[in-house]
Protein backbone atom coordinates (compact mmCIF):
# COMPACT_ATOMS: atom_id res chain seq x y z
CA UNK A 1 0.00 0.00 0.00
CA UNK A 2 1.37 3.39 -1.00
CA UNK A 3 2.13 5.74 1.86
CA UNK A 4 0.48 9.14 1.58
CA UNK A 5 3.19 11.77 1.14
CA UNK A 6 3.34 14.57 3.69
CA UNK A 7 3.43 17.80 1.73
CA UNK A 8 5.54 20.71 2.87
CA UNK A 9 3.97 24.01 3.87
CA UNK A 10 6.05 27.01 2.92
CA UNK A 11 5.79 29.84 5.41
CA UNK A 12 7.72 33.05 5.86
CA UNK A 13 10.64 33.51 8.26
CA UNK A 14 10.60 36.36 10.78
CA UNK A 15 12.62 36.58 13.96
CA UNK A 16 13.68 32.94 13.83
CA UNK A 17 10.06 31.78 13.59
CA UNK A 18 7.95 30.57 10.69
CA UNK A 19 4.64 32.41 10.78
CA UNK A 20 2.14 32.61 7.97
CA UNK A 21 1.70 35.99 6.41
CA UNK A 22 -0.52 38.11 8.61
CA UNK A 23 -2.67 38.73 5.55
CA UNK A 24 -3.55 35.06 5.19
CA UNK A 25 -3.06 35.31 1.45
CA UNK A 26 -1.13 32.92 -0.77
CA UNK A 27 -0.10 32.42 -4.35
CA UNK A 28 0.92 29.36 -6.30
CA UNK A 29 4.52 28.91 -7.27
CA UNK A 30 4.75 27.39 -10.70
CA UNK A 31 7.39 25.37 -12.45
CA UNK A 32 8.57 25.96 -15.99
CA UNK A 33 5.54 24.17 -17.34
CA UNK A 34 3.25 26.45 -15.39
CA UNK A 35 2.26 23.66 -13.07
CA UNK A 36 1.78 24.64 -9.43
CA UNK A 37 4.41 23.20 -7.11
CA UNK A 38 3.44 24.76 -3.81
CA UNK A 39 1.33 27.39 -2.09
CA UNK A 40 3.44 30.33 -1.08
CA UNK A 41 2.69 33.12 1.39
CA UNK A 42 1.75 36.37 -0.28
CA UNK A 43 3.29 38.69 2.30
CA UNK A 44 1.85 42.09 3.05
CA UNK A 45 3.29 45.46 4.07
CA UNK A 46 2.55 44.52 7.68
CA UNK A 47 4.82 41.51 7.33
CA UNK A 48 7.49 43.94 6.14
CA UNK A 49 6.84 46.05 9.20
CA UNK A 50 7.10 43.07 11.52
CA UNK A 51 10.23 41.82 9.85
CA UNK A 52 11.93 45.21 10.04
CA UNK A 53 11.07 45.48 13.72
CA UNK A 54 12.60 42.15 14.53
CA UNK A 55 15.61 42.75 12.29
CA UNK A 56 16.28 46.02 14.07
CA UNK A 57 16.18 44.33 17.45
CA UNK A 58 18.56 41.60 16.34
CA UNK A 59 21.08 43.80 14.58
CA UNK A 60 23.00 45.35 17.48
CA UNK A 61 23.77 42.06 19.17
CA UNK A 62 24.76 40.47 15.86
CA UNK A 63 27.17 43.33 15.15
CA UNK A 64 28.62 42.98 18.62
CA UNK A 65 29.35 39.28 18.17
CA UNK A 66 33.04 38.82 17.59
CA UNK A 67 33.99 38.67 13.94
CA UNK A 68 35.41 35.22 14.57
CA UNK A 69 32.09 34.05 15.95
CA UNK A 70 30.21 35.36 12.95
CA UNK A 71 32.66 33.46 10.76
CA UNK A 72 31.93 30.27 12.70
CA UNK A 73 28.22 30.74 12.33
CA UNK A 74 28.48 31.37 8.60
CA UNK A 75 30.57 28.26 8.24
CA UNK A 76 27.94 26.38 10.20
CA UNK A 77 25.36 27.50 7.62
CA UNK A 78 27.53 25.94 4.93
CA UNK A 79 27.81 22.70 6.90
CA UNK A 80 24.08 22.40 7.39
CA UNK A 81 23.38 23.24 3.77
CA UNK A 82 25.86 20.60 2.64
CA UNK A 83 24.07 18.06 4.78
CA UNK A 84 20.77 18.95 3.22
CA UNK A 85 22.01 19.45 -0.31
CA UNK A 86 19.93 16.58 -1.69
CA UNK A 87 16.78 18.29 -0.53
CA UNK A 88 17.82 21.53 -2.24
CA UNK A 89 18.68 19.74 -5.46
CA UNK A 90 15.28 18.12 -5.43
CA UNK A 91 13.54 21.37 -4.73
CA UNK A 92 15.39 23.15 -7.49
CA UNK A 93 14.40 20.35 -9.84
CA UNK A 94 10.82 20.92 -8.79
CA UNK A 95 11.36 24.45 -10.03
CA UNK A 96 12.55 23.06 -13.38
CA UNK A 97 16.34 22.96 -12.88
CA UNK A 98 18.03 19.95 -14.45
CA UNK A 99 19.75 17.71 -11.97
CA UNK A 100 23.12 18.94 -13.14
CA UNK A 101 22.12 22.58 -12.93
CA UNK A 102 20.64 22.04 -9.50
CA UNK A 103 23.74 20.27 -8.23
CA UNK A 104 26.05 23.02 -9.49
CA UNK A 105 23.74 25.63 -7.97
CA UNK A 106 23.79 24.04 -4.54
CA UNK A 107 27.50 23.35 -4.54
CA UNK A 108 28.30 26.89 -5.67
CA UNK A 109 26.05 28.25 -2.97
CA UNK A 110 27.79 26.23 -0.28
CA UNK A 111 31.21 27.30 -1.51
CA UNK A 112 30.12 30.94 -1.57
CA UNK A 113 28.96 30.72 2.04
CA UNK A 114 32.34 29.28 3.00
CA UNK A 115 34.00 32.12 1.09
CA UNK A 116 32.13 34.74 3.10
CA UNK A 117 32.58 32.79 6.35
CA UNK A 118 36.29 33.27 5.84
CA UNK A 119 35.91 37.00 5.25
CA UNK A 120 34.13 37.77 8.54
CA UNK A 121 37.26 38.36 10.57
CA UNK A 122 39.37 39.69 7.71
CA UNK A 123 37.47 42.26 5.70
CA UNK A 124 37.97 44.90 8.33
CA UNK A 125 41.69 44.24 8.40
CA UNK A 126 42.10 44.73 4.69
CA UNK A 127 39.84 47.74 4.37
CA UNK A 128 40.70 49.68 7.52
CA UNK A 129 43.47 52.21 7.62
CA UNK A 130 45.69 54.00 10.06
CA UNK A 131 45.94 57.51 8.73
CA UNK A 132 49.16 59.49 9.12
CA UNK A 133 47.77 62.89 10.04
CA UNK A 134 49.98 65.94 10.40
CA UNK A 135 49.19 66.61 14.03
CA UNK A 136 49.88 64.79 17.26
CA UNK A 137 46.93 62.44 16.92
CA UNK A 138 46.38 58.76 16.39
CA UNK A 139 43.84 58.42 13.60
CA UNK A 140 42.29 55.28 12.23
CA UNK A 141 39.38 54.37 10.01
CA UNK A 142 37.51 51.18 10.49
CA UNK A 143 34.32 49.60 9.23
CA UNK A 144 31.08 49.43 11.11
CA UNK A 145 27.91 47.63 10.05
CA UNK A 146 25.54 49.86 8.13
CA UNK A 147 22.63 48.41 10.14
CA UNK A 148 19.49 46.97 8.65
CA UNK A 149 19.45 46.10 4.96
CA UNK A 150 16.39 45.53 2.82
CA UNK A 151 16.93 43.02 0.02
CA UNK A 152 14.72 42.66 -3.02
CA UNK A 153 15.62 39.52 -4.97
CA UNK A 154 15.14 39.46 -8.74
CA UNK A 155 12.07 37.53 -9.80
CA UNK A 156 13.87 34.59 -11.32
CA UNK A 157 16.77 34.34 -8.91
CA UNK A 158 17.44 31.23 -6.98
CA UNK A 159 19.57 29.75 -4.20
CA UNK A 160 22.99 30.97 -5.34
CA UNK A 161 21.62 34.46 -5.92
CA UNK A 162 20.07 34.58 -2.48
CA UNK A 163 23.34 33.47 -0.91
CA UNK A 164 25.24 36.07 -2.93
CA UNK A 165 22.99 38.84 -1.67
CA UNK A 166 22.63 37.77 1.95
CA UNK A 167 26.07 36.52 2.95
CA UNK A 168 28.06 39.74 2.46
CA UNK A 169 25.37 41.58 4.40
CA UNK A 170 25.41 39.34 7.44
CA UNK A 171 29.14 38.67 7.30
CA UNK A 172 29.50 42.38 8.03
CA UNK A 173 27.25 42.31 11.09
CA UNK A 174 24.09 43.64 9.46
CA UNK A 175 20.63 42.21 9.70
CA UNK A 176 18.36 41.97 6.69
CA UNK A 177 14.80 41.69 5.53
CA UNK A 178 14.67 39.87 2.22
CA UNK A 179 11.88 39.54 -0.26
CA UNK A 180 12.51 36.25 -2.02
CA UNK A 181 12.35 35.55 -5.70
CA UNK A 182 8.74 35.67 -6.71
CA UNK A 183 9.01 32.87 -9.23
CA UNK A 184 11.44 30.58 -7.43
CA UNK A 185 10.63 30.97 -3.74
CA UNK A 186 10.91 27.39 -2.55
CA UNK A 187 14.62 27.24 -1.82
CA UNK A 188 14.46 30.59 -0.07
CA UNK A 189 12.14 29.22 2.57
CA UNK A 190 13.96 25.95 2.84
CA UNK A 191 17.14 27.96 3.25
CA UNK A 192 15.46 29.75 6.12
CA UNK A 193 15.21 26.36 7.80
CA UNK A 194 18.94 25.97 7.32
CA UNK A 195 19.53 29.35 8.90
CA UNK A 196 17.27 28.43 11.75
CA UNK A 197 19.28 25.33 12.58
CA UNK A 198 22.71 26.87 12.21
CA UNK A 199 23.11 29.24 15.19
CA UNK A 200 22.19 32.37 13.25
CA UNK A 201 20.35 34.42 15.86
CA UNK A 202 16.66 34.91 15.16
CA UNK A 203 15.93 38.17 13.37
CA UNK A 204 19.31 38.53 11.67
CA UNK A 205 17.89 37.19 8.41
CA UNK A 206 14.19 37.53 7.73
CA UNK A 207 12.69 36.11 4.56
CA UNK A 208 9.38 37.11 3.07
CA UNK A 209 7.74 35.68 0.00
CA UNK A 210 5.29 37.42 -2.21
CA UNK A 211 5.04 40.05 -4.85
CA UNK A 212 7.94 42.45 -5.26
CA UNK A 213 5.52 44.81 -6.93
CA UNK A 214 3.62 44.99 -3.66
CA UNK A 215 6.54 44.90 -1.25
CA UNK A 216 9.23 47.14 -2.76
CA UNK A 217 7.45 50.25 -1.61
CA UNK A 218 6.99 49.61 2.12
CA UNK A 219 10.51 48.23 2.34
CA UNK A 220 12.23 51.00 0.34
CA UNK A 221 10.39 53.76 2.13
CA UNK A 222 10.71 52.32 5.65
CA UNK A 223 12.51 54.95 7.75
CA UNK A 224 14.23 52.34 9.91
CA UNK A 225 15.92 50.58 7.00
CA UNK A 226 19.48 51.81 6.47
CA UNK A 227 20.31 50.34 3.09
CA UNK A 228 18.84 48.40 0.22
CA UNK A 229 20.34 45.73 -1.98
CA UNK A 230 18.56 45.43 -5.31
CA UNK A 231 19.05 44.08 -8.80
CA UNK A 232 20.34 46.82 -11.05
CA UNK A 233 17.97 45.54 -13.74
CA UNK A 234 14.93 45.76 -11.50
CA UNK A 235 12.03 47.42 -13.19
CA UNK A 236 11.34 49.24 -9.93
CA UNK A 237 14.87 50.60 -9.73
CA UNK A 238 14.01 54.28 -10.10
CA UNK A 239 10.98 54.03 -7.83
CA UNK A 240 13.03 52.30 -5.19
CA UNK A 241 15.75 54.96 -5.39
CA UNK A 242 13.16 57.70 -5.04
CA UNK A 243 11.51 55.99 -2.10
CA UNK A 244 14.91 55.60 -0.45
CA UNK A 245 15.64 59.34 -0.48
CA UNK A 246 13.67 60.31 2.61
CA UNK A 247 16.14 58.83 5.08
CA UNK A 248 18.98 58.65 2.57
CA UNK A 249 19.14 54.89 2.43
CA UNK A 250 22.20 53.63 0.70
CA UNK A 251 20.92 51.78 -2.37
CA UNK A 252 23.39 49.17 -3.58
CA UNK A 253 22.87 47.50 -6.90
CA UNK A 254 23.92 44.04 -8.00
CA UNK A 255 24.92 43.70 -11.62
CA UNK A 256 27.59 41.00 -11.45
CA UNK A 257 27.23 37.59 -13.03
CA UNK A 258 26.63 35.60 -9.88
CA UNK A 259 27.55 32.31 -11.48
CA UNK A 260 31.15 33.47 -11.78
CA UNK A 261 33.75 34.66 -9.30
CA UNK A 262 32.63 38.21 -10.03
CA UNK A 263 29.60 37.40 -7.95
CA UNK A 264 31.58 37.44 -4.75
CA UNK A 265 34.17 39.73 -3.25
CA UNK A 266 35.27 42.15 -0.61
CA UNK A 267 33.42 45.03 -2.27
CA UNK A 268 30.07 43.36 -1.58
CA UNK A 269 30.87 43.34 2.12
CA UNK A 270 32.18 46.90 2.34
CA UNK A 271 29.15 48.10 0.39
CA UNK A 272 27.23 47.47 3.60
CA UNK A 273 29.70 49.06 5.96
CA UNK A 274 30.03 52.62 7.17
CA UNK A 275 33.54 53.90 7.59
CA UNK A 276 34.21 55.43 10.97
CA UNK A 277 37.28 57.55 11.59
CA UNK A 278 38.49 58.06 15.15
CA UNK A 279 40.97 60.61 16.44
CA UNK A 280 42.84 60.70 19.73
CA UNK A 281 45.73 62.85 20.89
CA UNK A 282 49.20 61.37 21.30
CA UNK A 283 51.05 62.89 24.20
CA UNK A 284 54.73 63.35 23.46
CA UNK A 285 56.78 64.03 26.54
CA UNK A 286 60.42 64.67 27.14
CA UNK A 287 63.29 63.77 24.86
CA UNK A 288 62.66 60.05 24.56
CA UNK A 289 62.37 59.08 20.92
CA UNK A 290 61.70 55.87 19.12
CA UNK A 291 64.93 56.06 17.13
CA UNK A 292 68.05 54.12 18.04
Amino acid sequence: MNRLEVLKTYKIFIGGKFPRTESGRFYKALNANNEPVANICLSSRKDVRNAVQTARKAQGAWQERTAFNRGQILYRIAEILEGRSAQFVEELMLQSFTKKEATVEVESAIDRIVYYAGWCDKFNQVSSTVNPVSSSHFNFSTNESIGLVGVLMPATSSLLDLISYVMPIIAGGNSCVLVASEKLPLTAITFAEVLNTSDVPGGVVNILTGSVEELWSPLSAHMDVNALFIDKASRFRKDIQLAAVDNLKRVREMSADLKTENGQGLAFITAFQELKTTWHPIEKIGGASSSY
Partner: peptide, 20 residues
Protein backbone atom coordinates in the same frame (compact mmCIF):
# COMPACT_ATOMS: atom_id res chain seq x y z
CA UNK B 1 26.62 56.40 14.96
CA UNK B 2 28.91 58.92 13.35
CA UNK B 3 31.45 58.91 10.58
CA UNK B 4 34.03 60.83 12.54
CA UNK B 5 34.61 60.50 16.26
CA UNK B 6 36.95 62.85 18.02
CA UNK B 7 38.11 61.53 21.37
CA UNK B 8 39.61 64.18 23.64
CA UNK B 9 39.78 66.56 20.70
CA UNK B 10 37.33 68.11 18.24
CA UNK B 11 37.12 69.60 14.75
CA UNK B 12 40.38 68.18 13.49
CA UNK B 13 40.82 67.69 9.76
CA UNK B 14 43.57 66.20 7.67
CA UNK B 15 43.91 65.18 4.02
CA UNK B 16 44.82 61.66 5.09
CA UNK B 17 41.76 61.29 7.29
CA UNK B 18 38.48 60.15 5.69
CA UNK B 19 35.50 62.37 6.44
CA UNK B 20 31.81 61.73 5.92
Amino acid sequence: KAGVVWANTYNKFDPASPFG
